[in-house]
């Protein structure tokens, strides 16, 4: 294995890039976008775990994202628990909501699960909108504090009121989750989930309890979305239900599809591209979602493996005489 095809090498490169980004982009506009990117990466790899690996279309990501955001924020503002406790609670609650939903739906074919999860997203949105005594409804919750300073003995405390350190926090967390999921999918868990995706009856004939594993994949996917929600709330400082409308689920889906489902690096690339591209094309304004829609449709029709498949095709063409490798 040469150095450029080794996984460690690329992970180190990614860590260095994350470290350098705030130094390259010093204005708050781009730093804000970087944080949005990191959150979207988190949401996209979470969805891909359940969609790309276990083959279950979860259209409820917007709901789990919202549950994480509202639960952690309300725990902080109403109950007064410390940020990191609220964070853990938000993640767990989103995971539990995912389990709740999947328990309803695991006995069903993929389509039913997709619709049930969409229904769940609609319910959650309506609850956020209508439970005014708790969520303030459409008025929203304002003035949410950033995470508290993080003290490492012997160093000055890290303040999260500045965008660079907030970026390090979210991107670092997304990087950690990536590593964790990557390790999981490279273990027999990955084999089991793909077996379920490919053919559940066949997987059962090998002893795989499809229901149990689907619940597991749902739990992981929604917990990751919940973490994204917690970061979102503390970064934006404002929560309104519209941020968690079902179109958010579709945007996350678009990132996974365009990047390439069934790989983890694909959704990362997709999330970055679909977050940054519309910013670069700001002139087109309202066209952002049209771009999402068109790209999802075209990718499914012509390049179902997304950017990753495209990259592999290009790489194979470039070094045709050499042996064509698999994953980086």
């Amino acid at each position: 294995m040469s150095i450029v095809t080794s996984r460690r090498f690329w992970l180190v490169v990614a860590a260095i890039v994350i470290g350098l980004l705030p130094a390259i982009f010093t204005d708050s506009y781009w730093r804000t976008n970087l944080i949005v990117c990191a959150i979207n990466v988190l949401l996209a790899i979470g969805l891909d775990f359940v969609l790309g690996y276990a083959g279950q279309l979860n259209l409820g990501q917007s709901a789990f994202y919202g549950i994480g955001a509202y639960a952690s924020t309300l725990l902080i503002t109403q109950v007064g628990v410390p940020f990191w406790v609220a964070f853990v609670a938000g993640v767990l609650l989103a995971g539990v909501a995912g389990v709740f939903l999947s328990v309803f739906a695991v006995r069903l074919r993929g389509h039913y699960l997709a619709i049930a999860s969409l229904g769940f997203a609609v319910i959650t949105y309506q609850v956020l909108l209508n439970w005014i005594s708790l969520t303030q409804g459409p008025l929203g919750i304002y003035g949410i504090a950033p995470p508290p300073p993080f003290a490492i003995p012997g160093l000055p405390p890290i303040e999260f009121s500045n965008l660079a350190s907030l970026f390090y926090l979210t991107a670092g967390f997304a990087f950690l989750v990536y590593l964790l999921l990557d390790q999981l999918v490279r273990s027999p868990v990955g084999e089991t989930l793909t077996a379920i995706r490919e053919d559940e009856v066949s997987a059962a004939s090998l002893g795989v309890n499809g229901q149990k594993w689907k619940v597991f994949a749902f739990a992981v996917s929604s917990a990751v979305a919940g973490a994204g929600g917690c970061f979102y709330a503390s970064f934006v400082g404002t929560l309104v239900p519209d941020a968690f409308f079902i179109t958010e689920s579709f945007s996350i889906l678009a990132m996974v599809i365009v990047g390439g489902m069934g790989t983890l690096i694909g959704p990362v690339l997709g999330a970055i591209l679909l977050t940054v591209l519309p910013e670069l094309l700001r002139g087109i304004g309202d066209l952002r979602l049209i771009v999402y829609g068109v790209s999802v449709t075209l990718v499914v029709l012509f390049m179902p493996g997304g950017l990753v498949q495209a990259a592999r095709l290009v790489a194979a063409r470039v070094r045709r005489p050499a042996k064509v490798g698999r994953d980086p």
Binding site: L180, Q183, L184, S187, P188, V189, E191, T192, T194, A195, A203, L206, G207, V208
Partner: peptide, 16 residues
């Protein structure tokens, strides 16, 4: 490999 599903000998934490 998928057929070995029931026969792995890996402590849970080593999955990660």
């Amino acid at each position: 490999l998928a057929g070995f599903h029931l026969h792995h000998q890996i402590p849970p934490w080593q999955y990660i």
